[in-house]
């Protein structure tokens, strides 16, 4: 099981999170091939990957997670929204 350190709530177990995968920008044009890429083509890296997870059972915030798909190590978690003046995270 993964343990993800939520920027707000500290280390929590994976069942409290949902996986958001990687984001994908829309292409400026819209040929069939470009749309196929937008709809179906996702990165599948062996190694470090930039993902998004949401802490659904905790603070319900989205976060960026840098995770290694070969080792399951989590190298970095940072909030999508910076904590700024909301108080210091746990």
């Amino acid at each position: 099981m993964l343990q993800i350190t939520c920027p707000w709530c500290g280390p929590r177990d994976e069942p409290e999170f949902h996986y958001g995968g990687e984001g994908m920008p829309l292409p400026p044009d819209s040929t069939d091939a470009e749309w196929a890429a937008v709809l179906y083509q996702r990165p599948n890296p062996a190694g470090r990957t930039n993902e998004r997870w949401v802490h659904w059972a905790g603070c319900r915030q989205w976060m960026h997670v840098v995770r290694d798909t070969l080792t399951h190590d989590i190298h970095e978690v940072r909030p999508v929204r910076q904590p700024d003046d909301f108080g210091s995270p746990a």
């Binding site: 890296p45 798909t69 070969l70």
Partner: peptide
Amino acid sequence: NYLSYAQRGSFH
């Protein structure tokens, strides 16, 4: 639910 090449998954 997450990408992996590690041949192991989560216990839950």
